[in-house]
C-alpha cells in the first residue's frame, strides 16, 4: 500500500460522499446521469464477488489468509457497494422527479456489449470470476460516458457535481501513478488489463479536467462548457 493508492481510494470514497451530500442538501439529482450511476453498481457488483470468498473464510474460522490488506479491501468494497446502490436507490425513489432522464440519452448497450465481448476475449483466466472482474474493469473505464454526454448536453455543471466528477475521474489517475510506483518497486508486478483500461478511463476525463481547472482558477461556482 503506497501513498498514491491510499489517496486514490480516499478520493474515490470522497466522490460518493460528495454526490450523496449534493443530493441530500439540494434534494435534487439534476445534472447527474442515472445511467452512469447504474453502471457503477454493475461494475462493483461484478468486481467484488470475491467478498463471498472472504466471507466464506471468516465463517469457517479460516483466518490464515486474511491479512490487514484483506480487511481494508473488504471494508472499502462494502462501502463502495453500499454507497453506489444507495445513490441509485435515491435517484429512483425520493429524487426521481428531479432526475435528468429526458437528457440522459446514452444507449447503454453501446458500452455493455463491447465490454462483454472484450472481457470474453482479453482476460487473464477463462473463469467466471475472472471474466466478470475483467468486464468490470472495462465497463468502469467507459461508464462515465453517459455522464459526460449529459454534461455536454446541459452545457454546465453546478459546483458539487463538478467536484464529484473531479473526484471520480481523479481517483483513476492516481491509480495510474500507483501502478508505475508498484511496477518500479515490486518484482513481477504488472496487470496490463487494468493499466490500459485505467489509462482510457483517465483520458476520457481529459476535457473535463481542463474545464474544471479553468473553473477553479477563475473562481466560478459553476463549470461552463464553451458554446
Amino acid at each position: 500500500m503506497n501513498i498514491f493508492r491510499i489517496s486514490a481510494d480516499l478520493l474515490h470514497l470522497a466522490s460518493f460522499f460528495i454526490l450523496i451530500f449534493k443530493m441530500k442538501a439540494t434534494k435534487s439529482c439534476k445534472g447527474i446521469s442515472f445511467k452512469t450511476q447504474l453502471m457503477y453498481t454493475l461494475v462493483f457488483t461484478c468486481r467484488y464477488l470475491d467478498l463471498f470468498h472472504v466471507l466464506g473464510m471468516m465463517i469457517t474460522f479460516n483466518f490464515a489468509h486474511i491479512t490487514g490488506l484483506t480487511l481494508y479491501n473488504t471494508f472499502m468494497k462494502i462501502l463502495f457497494l453500499a454507497a453506489s446502490y444507495y445513490i441509485v436507490y435515491l435517484m429512483r425513489t425520493e429524487l426521481k422527479s428531479t432526475s435528468d432522464d429526458a437528457r440522459d440519452t446514452f444507449v447503454l448497450w453501446h458500452i455493455l456489449a463491447p465490454c462483454a465481448v472484450l472481457a470474453l476475449i482479453f482476460n487473464a483466466q477463462f473463469t467466471i470470476l475472472e471474466i466478470l472482474w475483467t468486464f468490470s474493469i472495462y465497463l468502469e473505464a467507459v461508464a462515465v460516458m453517459p455522464q459526460l454526454m449529459l454534461l455536454i448536453e446541459t452545457g454546465e455543471a453546478d459546483s458539487l457535481s463538478s467536484h464529484y466528477m473531479f473526484a471520480v475521474g481523479g481517483y483513476r489517475a492516481l491509480y495510474l501513478v500507483n501502478w508505475v510506483y508498484r511496477y518500479a518497486t515490486e518484482p513481477y508486478y504488472s496487470n496490463w488489463i487494468a493499466w490500459i483500461a485505467g489509462f482510457v478511463q483517465t483520458a476520457l476525463f481529459g476535457d473535463f479536467f481542463y474545464y474544471y481547472f479553468v473553473k477553479i482558477m477563475s473562481g466560478d461556482a459553476a463549470l461552463k462548457l464553451p458554446t
Binding site: D9, D50, V54, H65, T70, N73, F80, L129, W133, N178
Partner: peptide
Amino acid sequence: ESDDELHDEL
C-alpha cells in the same frame, strides 16, 4: 491463494 491476493486493489 485467495482472489483477494490476485486482485489486491479496488
